[in-house]
Design a binder for these strands. Structure first.
Lengths: 196, 196
DNA sequence: CAGGAAATTGCTAGTCACTAGCTTTTGACA
DNA sequence: TGTCAAAAGCTAGTGACTAGCAATTTCCTG
């Protein structure tokens, strides 16, 4: 079913992304030019921009939030909202292949060190809150856009964010150590944020 | 005490910012070039960059989080953390002069409509969490860096963020309507996030 | 007030991300 | 094999931002 064209396109996309990641890791994000990446991937600079709208986008993925939403919807109806998020995250992480896991870690490392990328990831947080708010309201039988569901979604995302000290949306790639902290954070939130 | 030099500098800075804001509002952020701003403010483009490192920074302020931290520290010792945040915000808003308030609203409107700016504001959220976590731990007599304090800080910031549907850190400028929602959000958080 | 140090500004020339429009190549399919 | 459309390359820009140098302005001291 996959035509030659599609296969080639996928290969080009992968080549660009791989060389970009490698160069970012070797020389840093800012010091790597799009031309260098294009050269390494043996495409023209214009082709680079046809595949990725900006240099940053090479390391960003699109539909991660959506995956989480699906996983939350898949939880049994009786489960409480925060608990459902927690279980859903476990499912998502359990489904990660070793390669995917390793790739996530590399990306996470990049996010960690490059401010511009961190900013972009944060930006997706608003969307994450929107999505989560929708799912929470849905599960609780509340109208979409319900304020209390929104606040809970915000608190959940914020709690998740606090786990990775220097930023990075957990749903988008976390190290194993972070994963455990993530669980603890959501558990705390579930218990009404006890201190100490 | 203010030398001629300092006064001139302040005036130049204000001129650049005012003209930039005006042009952004009139023509949009992307459509406004630094050269235009420089022309309008009657300085050279290089001078623009001496005052503001990037075009975005013209609309961004620096120490807003610090103000909030001070206000939280000023709350009486017995008050619970979230409550302290709530009271502190009231104090901060009460202290705003009418002009400052109006300026904040203009900025808020810009953040609302310009994705790049939103991203930058979000970026400051991590710092906000760090600061808040410190203050919360301090007030609760916990060691700095305490995990539960961090999670609470994250949840608080997230809850505040959820108030403004399309982003924008509340502490940095909110419309009056937002202010009321902000209070409600923190109250909900305080009550352990009841739904409905 | 003179006159030099220090700060501030402007200018020049550049790099790099990104866009628009056009031509050339290459895979698809009759 | 010939034709059509997708994809890649090329050219020429724009605009944010930097580095370094020269001119100007404010400040300070004698």
């Amino acid at each position: 079913m996959t035509s030659l064209r599609e296969r080639k396109k996928a290969k080009t996309r992968a080549a660009i992304r791989d060389h970009a990641m490698r160069l970012f890791e070797e020389q840093g994000f800012a010091a790597t030019t799009v031309d260098q990446i294009a050269d390494a991937a043996e495409v023209s600079p214009s082709t680079f921009f046809r595949y990725f709208p900006t240099k940053e986008d090479v390391v960003l993925i699109d539909d991660v939030d959506a995956v989480l939403v699906v996983a939350i919807r898949a939880q049994p109806a009786g489960v409480e909202p925060i608990q459902a998020i927690l279980l859903a995250m476990r499912d998502v992480f359990a489904d990660l292949s070793p390669e995917a896991w390793e790739f996530e870690q590399r990306r996470q490392r990049l996010f960690h060190s490059v401010p511009e990328l961190r900013a972009r990831v944060m930006h997706q947080m608003t969307d994450a809150i929107d999505l989560l708010a929708g799912v929470i309201a849905e599960r609780a039988g509340l109208p979409p856009g319900d304020f209390s569901a929104r606040v809970m979604a915000g608190a959940a995302v914020g709690a998740m964010l606090s786990v990775v000290p220097s930023g990075g949306l957990p749903a988008e790639g976390v190290t194993p150590a972070d994963h455990e902290r993530l669980e603890r954070a959501l558990t705390l939130l579930q218990q009404g944020l006890p201190l100490g």
